[in-house]
Amino acid sequence: MRERAIIEPHSQPALPRYVRLQFDELRQCWALLAPERVMWPDEISVDILKRCDGRATTDAIVSDLANDYAAPEDEIRQDVTTFLQEWADKRLVVCMDKAEI
């Protein structure tokens, strides 16, 4: 049986095949499409989700974001990890290191 994905520094988060992040031309914003739901993630959420490519680790995502936002890594590490764990618990994000999609 599948296990709950726990977001660790070395986890490689990804959007599963059934979750799609796409730019909506008509509404001029990002839409996240998933079974039975449409979500409108804010700018920071989109920046995190775009980096969830199944290759980058949580650590790499944090340092990349720290660089882009000119913020200290330690400040955003907890926020990013909490965000990814919440999304993993809704099965909107999976971890490639669990070889599961």
Partner: peptide
């Protein structure tokens, strides 16, 4: 079953 199965 958090993170394993979503139940509506």
């Amino acid at each position: 079953l958090t993170g394993i199965l979503n139940i509506d």
